[in-house]
Amino acid sequence: MTIHDFSVKSAGDSDVSLSAYAGSVVLIVNVASKCGFTPQYEGLESLYRDGQDRGLAILGFPCNQFGEQEPGMDSEIQEFCSVNYGVTFPVFGKVEVNGPGADPLYAYLRAEAPGDFGPSAGPLYEHVKASRPEALGTDEVKWNFTKFLVGRDGGVIRRFETPVTPEEVKFEIADLLD
């Protein structure tokens, strides 16, 4: 199984098969408009513009599970991304990434790259520890802007936790695009 076996909902509620991204290096990110990490949209867009001609795809999935930081409707999210950050990579329909309602894609991503972070994550670790202590030590997505790097074959390579910026994953992505 790979990400190519999944379909997701577009912001317009149509089905999109991720098999369309076969042969691409993909960075999948759960995003939010009202988060302290929202400025990562700028870095994600920069990565996308620099790498799209070499086979990079960035897929954004809005999620309102973390502090209700993505409260808008899909159309409002699309407008926010375009107007505030000039986002040109696909931002899909809102999903859940954890719990019984988790999108099957995210259940797969979490199982393939469980990830975790500790005190080295600084203030975010302290925030998760205080607000979602049950998530620590699990495969759950801990917060907005968790990133999953997927190879051209659709297999999950690595998970980057929220504090890791798009600029910090740039070199690992560049190695996969060469």
Rank of each mutant, 00 (worst) to 15 (best):
V26C: 13
M73I: 09
G72V: 05
L56Y: 04
F92H: 14
T88W: 04
F171D: 15
K34I: 02
G67P: 13
C35N: 14
G101I: 00
V25Y: 03
E68T: 10
G72N: 08
S46L: 13
T2G: 05
T2N: 04
G55F: 07
G154H: 04
G23A: 07
C81V: 01
D153T: 12
G93Y: 07
L177I: 08
Y108R: 02
G86V: 11
W143V: 01
V25K: 06
G99Q: 11
G137V: 01
L124K: 14
G99M: 10
K94I: 05
T162S: 15
G118A: 10
P166W: 13
M73K: 15
Y108T: 08
E126R: 14
L56K: 10
S131I: 00
P133Y: 02
E96Y: 04
H4I: 03
A174G: 12
F80C: 06
T165I: 02
V83E: 14
F117H: 01
T146L: 04
V156E: 08
R132A: 14
V128W: 03
Q40F: 10
G67Q: 10
I3D: 02
T162A: 15
E134F: 02
S75H: 13
V25S: 04
T162P: 00
Y85C: 05
M1C: 02
I173K: 10
V83P: 00
K170A: 15
L59V: 12
T38V: 09
A111L: 08
G55C: 11
R159Q: 11
V128E: 09
N98K: 13
G23Y: 08
L149M: 11
V25T: 15
K147C: 02
H127E: 13
G154T: 01
V91D: 01
Y125L: 04
F89C: 03
A107F: 01
V95I: 15
P100N: 14
S33I: 03
Q69R: 06
S120W: 08
L136I: 09
F148T: 11
V141A: 14
L109R: 09
R132P: 00
Y41D: 10
V164I: 15
I173G: 03
P62S: 07
V29I: 12
E70C: 08
G122Q: 09
F148K: 12
G36E: 07
Y85M: 04
G55M: 10
L149N: 11
A135C: 02
C35L: 01
G60P: 01
V83C: 03
M1G: 09
G12A: 15
E76D: 15
N98M: 07
N64S: 13
R132S: 13
A32G: 12
H127V: 08
E68I: 02
V128G: 03
G67N: 09
G43N: 12
D153P: 07
A11W: 00
G137C: 03
E76H: 06
T138S: 14
